[in-house]
């Protein structure tokens, strides 16, 4: 849940990159960290194993824009994709204002995509949050590989609500910024709406 600091006129939002193991969540954050203006991002915190697998989470604070005189800051988090770390995933997901579901486009991991997608919904349900109420988008990553499913098939598998999606190659940065920008737009809309309706 976003927090508003009236004294400093700041709004802090939490965005979570979710998805199966090795789908490119951390790569997204690493690219953002390397290519964002230094003035608009903080240092990236990454707790990973020697094998570059996320152990707990990655965190990257970024600053976006001013809206109605309030500075909007986003905390970008990733979850560990490995099946075992569900308690950690659930903990990181707590209070999220938006979610990017990073799906691996390779045919061989399509089942892992589905499992992780179901896991996301289960974990959100644990906090009594429904995807009807939480802005989220899909990022179909690794589009540069050869043995990948067509986007329309992944849409058929995952995107039952027709939410926005992006095609990405996180390693090269393709689609990384557009993913973040699209989600931020929806998160801000949702934030403003909740503020106006008194649901905040």
């Amino acid at each position: 849940m976003a927090s508003i600091n009236y004294a400093t006129r700041e709004i802090n939002c939490k965005l979570v990159y979710y998805g199966p193991g090795l789908c490119g969540k951390t790569t997204n954050l690493q690219f953002l960290h390397q290519h964002l203006n230094r003035g608009r991002r903080g240092e990236m915190v990454s707790l990973a194993t020697p094998g570059e697998r996320t152990l707990y989470f990655d965190f990257l604070p970024v600053e976006m824009a001013e809206i109605n005189g309030f500075k909007v800051k986003f905390g970008l988090y990733t979850v560990p994709g490995q099946v075992l770390y569900n308690a950690t995933r659930k903990l990181v997901l707590r209070g999220a204002d938006g979610v990017v579901f990073v799906a691996d486009s390779q045919w061989d991991v399509m089942q892992e995509n589905l499992d992780s997608w179901q896991n996301l919904q289960d974990n959100l349900a644990g906090y009594n949050v429904h995807l009807e109420d939480l802005p989220y988008i899909f990022q179909y990553n690794k589009r540069d590989l050869t043995d990948i499913a067509p986007v329309w098939y992944m849409e058929y598998l995952l995107n039952a609500r027709g939410v926005p999606y992006t095609e990405a190659v996180a390693l090269d940065g393709r689609g990384v910024f557009s993913t973040l920008n699209i989600l931020c737009r929806f998160v801000i809309r949702d934030l403003v709406h909740r503020f106006e309706t008194g649901a905040f």
């Binding site: 290519h35 964002l36 230094r38 995807l131």
Partner: peptide, 22 residues
Amino acid sequence: RIPPAWMRLPAVPQESQFDDVE
């Protein structure tokens, strides 16, 4: 596909977005 309610919210004017600058 029935889009969720948050997708139908009106746009909010923003000053900027994230760009690849480095």
